[in-house]
Design a protein around this nucleic acid. Sequence first.
RNA 1: GGUCAGAUGGCCGAGUGGCUAGGCAAAGCUCUGCAAAAGCUUCUACAGCGGUUCGAAUCCGCUUCUGACCUCCA
Length: 496
Amino acid sequence: MNPLKIYNSLSREKEIFAPINPPYAGMYVCGPTVSGETHLGHSRPYVTFDIVYRFLQYSGYKVRYVRNITDAGHFEEEDKDAVDKVAVKAKLEQLEPMELVQKYTNIYHDMMDKLNVIRPSIEPTATGHIVEQISMIEDIIAKGFAYVVNGSVYFDVTRYAKQHDYGRLSGRKIEEMIAGSRELEGQGEKRNPADFALWKNAPPEHLMRWKSPWGEGFPGWHIECSAMSSKYLGIPFDIHGGGMDLLFPHHESEIAQTKIATGLALANYWMHNNMITIKGQKMSKSLGNTITIAQMFSGGHPLLEQGYSPMTLRFFILQTHYRSTLDFSNEALLAAEKGLQRLMNALDALNKLSYKENAAQYKEEENNQVLQLMNSCTEYMNDDFNTAMAMASLFELSSKIFSWKNEQLAIASIKKETFELLVKTFNAFVTDIFGLKNEKENDDSKMNGLMELLISLRKEARSKKDFATSDKIRDDLFAAGIQLKDGKEGTSWEGV
RNA sequence: GGUCAGAUGGCCGAGUGGCUAGGCAAAGCUCUGCAAAAGCUUCUACAGCGGUUCGAAUCCGCUUCUGACCUCCA
């Protein structure tokens, strides 16, 4: 068995994962800014790191997973109009920033639950850690790497770059950045365009504000992650994750701040998931191709021909390696829907199979092949979480399972221990590691009773060759959204 | 403009210097009263042009095209 290897964005290589304090592992993932509705783009990192979290646990690590909620600071800018518009209204009519934040946090949680993303060990909010952020900023000022201008505090990137390796993570050089930087509003306060805000002075109309040594204001975007990760994981910690678009400037800034505040490197392994694209382009509001996760499930978007279930989306994400872009199209989603169904059918079939001893039917080669396929699932996951390859092995095992079910292949061609291990491993991979669940299960006992009656009536009609009646039952049920499935062991049903 | 990724069969997508990933679609078959569902089988691709090599889709160079980041972003 090979050790777990993780592609580290810092070194641009796969490295053997060696946590600082085994069997404990600390992981921090940049969470969403809750100023808008959870969209398709959000599904990628949270499913990706959900898999990392699950697989680390499966591998025996005790993981503390911290994933923040950004509910303070820069986000108000996007809703500036709304804030300004309501400023003169009565208190209750005003859009409370916390109300907005709560609304979108609720939606985010709801969508993550639907996607079967396990909630993190700690989910800290930026507004809940103002004290920690102020304290870290004071520390950075004291060390001479930040300066105060008109109630705002900026990190001195130029000074930092003279002594430290700035731009290593994102692979850029500070001189080029300064040369190529654009003139942006508010840059007048900065000594250098490359500097970034640690704390921002709040204009009078800004509703979200806190007292600080520099006046009333709100924290800069990057500082929260440094403050919260160091508080809950210690510095350095093992894994820091997030979307590739956060490499610069967000993660680069986190590294710089933390280095000055603590004297240490923030995290040992940096993991970045790639983007979700639609017809080859990243989703963005300006292109008008943003699809919310709710729309994805309901099909309520012009680009979608139909709704796709949460597990279809999850499966679709897992079929691609997390460092590749993932392009959305109806055909691809439809293919994922079918593929997921096949995998779930295999799981179901396996769990219903029982082993029948027959030493004469044993085939060494068959047994080894099954063992090898099972083993490869773990090996592929150990190779930088290659879910696509592990999934392929599960599909190969699925073919075996169906062959046993159809008795095209004797179950006794493999050893009893192999079969038992397969049941355990297959379930673990599909359910525990990939986090997939059967969405078509029906555990409504009243409904089941009713269906049993209809199925037995149809069976009776068929035995009397009264096909008019049996077909009416079948076709009318189908029209009502229920599909009957005739199999060797009788008839089953599922909602379509 | 700078930096960095990619270009794989009808579609989506892994991957490795020699050993046909996998999924979907399609065709044939099995099952069935007929269907549906399900399963089985078949379908040998790696942008173009050079080079390295016994051998390259895989390494190197060039060309073309696409995307991402450089500003809020997952």
